[in-house]
């Protein structure tokens, strides 16, 4: 017997993601999902960002296959930090984020940062219930990565070119990145930052504050 169905396989994940978003909205929290290759500087960026925003009003959910190292780095910085170990999973799921939300006091925060597992393909396929997607691309990764991983960059709400302090050291042409983006995503603002020198961080902080303001006025 053949049964015709038209049903999204990701439906269950998407339903949990919607519920996560509803919980965040109800608490007036703006959630930012940070995605990039391993080592692009997500954790160091958060270490610099959170104190600048008001550490007491920030929480982090951090996904890694193994270890609690990133959570330990952030523990003294953000008011609330929860590590999610995905085991063999190369991305966070809405259910894992939902469980992470259970561990947080959402009423006392304005910003939730979700540091996804370092991976340029899999995280992009899963809605977590975030409000914004921030995608990082670091200079040492090379100037060809936007064209190679378009599905990560296409849905990005902001694109951070990180480790720009290394621009003079490596053979890297920013113009190639921007040229590729001109076909893939012209909507997301592009911000060049260095977490080590502090370059560009003010623009990133301003972008985050704008998102929070938009979120509060929407709800």
């Amino acid at each position: 017997m053949k049964i015709n169905v038209v049903e999204s396989v990701l439906k269950a994940n998407d339903a949990v993601a919607r519920e996560n978003r509803r919980r965040l909205d109800a608490a007036g929290v703006v959630a930012v999902n940070l995605m990039s290759a391993p080592g692009s500087g997500k954790t160091l960026l958060l270490e610099k960002t959170i104190p600048a925003l008001a550490a007491a009003r920030c929480a982090v959910l951090v996904g890694d296959l193994q270890t609690t190292r990133d959570a330990e780095r952030l523990a003294g910085i953000a008011a609330q930090v929860t590590q999610i170990n995905t085991g063999t999973g190369c991305h966070l799921t809405a259910t894992q984020v939902g469980e992470g939300l259970d561990s947080l006091d959402l009423r006392s925060i304005d910003f939730l940062f979700i540091e996804n597992v370092g991976n340029m393909v899999c995280p992009a396929a899963f809605d977590l219930g975030e409000h914004r997607r921030a995608v990082l691309l670091s200079v040492p990764e090379g100037d060809d990565k936007v064209a190679k991983y378009p599905t990560l960059f296409q849905p990005a709400d902001v694109i951070l070119l990180t480790k720009v302090d290394l621009l003079g050291v490596l053979d890297y042409q920013r113009s190639k990145v921007y040229q590729d983006l001109s076909r893939i995503n012209t909507r997301a603002p592009r911000i060049e930052v260095s977490s080590t020198t502090g370059q560009g961080l003010d623009r990133w902080f301003a972008w985050l504050k704008d998102q929070r303001r938009a979120q509060v006025s929407d709800s």
Partner: peptide, 9 residues
């Protein structure tokens, strides 16, 4: 999306 279209059982 990923869509389940048919099942034969």
């Amino acid at each position: 999306d990923i869509v389940l279209r048919s099942v034969v059982c």
